[in-house]
């Protein structure tokens, strides 16, 4: 697999962008089809390889204590404190009907900006960064049948194959 990126090119939680992001107008988390080569972070969800454009991810965090919020909507894992800032952490799997895998030392939290707040997304492990040319990305229809709402496309290159994740149905928790 490729380079380890967990601390590169990322915005630190203390970065002013984090605070500003909350004030910003809702930003499209993913814009597909993409019009140029795309650097994507690969990770596992329900043991399947998924990917997100690297620009969407503010930071990759190791697993930290997550406080359960009773009565929270489906898909909310709980609350975490990232250097003093409260972050709502989501677990996409139940919503996507993906199998659970217990949290372990490979578990990571991806920080993303939902447009309204900074949120964490639990993933099972991070596999590194891959570069995909537009020609290497296919629409989700290639999976056959009605494509799931959370799959924005299918990407493959010489080294790997993965599903491009559409975050919108996951971030929609209300």
């Amino acid at each position: 697999m490729s380079r380890d990126v967990s601390r590169r090119n990322m915005v630190k939680a203390g970065d002013p962008r984090l605070a500003q992001a909350i004030e910003r107008e809702p930003s499209a988390v993913l814009r597909l089809p993409i019009d140029g080569p795309q650097e994507c972070l690969l990770f596992l969800l329900g043991n399947d390889p998924y990917a997100l454009p690297i620009g969407v991810i503010l930071e990759i965090l190791k697993l930290m204590p997550i406080t359960t919020v009773p009565r929270a909507p489906e898909g909310v894992a709980g609350l975490a404190s990232v250097r003093g800032q409260l972050i709502t952490v989501l677990d996409p799997r139940p919503k996507l009907g993906l199998p659970d895998r217990p949290q372990d030392r490979k578990t990571r939290i991806l920080l993303v900006d939902s447009g309204e707040e900074i949120m964490g997304i639990l993933v099972e492990e991070v596999r590194g960064v891959q570069r995909f040319e537009p020609s290497q990305i296919e629409p989700p229809q290639v999976l056959g049948g009605e494509p799931p709402a959370h799959v924005a496309g299918v990407a493959r290159n010489e080294e790997s194959w993965c599903l491009l994740l559409d975050l919108r149905p996951i971030l929609e928790v209300r």
């Binding site: 930290m64 204590p65 009773p70 909507p73 404190s81 409260l86 709502t88 707040e117 209300r174």
Partner: peptide, 26 residues
């Protein structure tokens, strides 16, 4: 601290706070 927008609709909590050790208490 106030809960994030996605949790505003959850009844019964006024907010949350850090209790040390990175633990968050509702």
């Amino acid at each position: 601290k106030a809960l994030g927008r996605s949790l505003r609709g959850v009844r019964g909590f006024a907010g949350a706070t850090e209790l040390g050790d990175q633990r968050v208490g509702l």
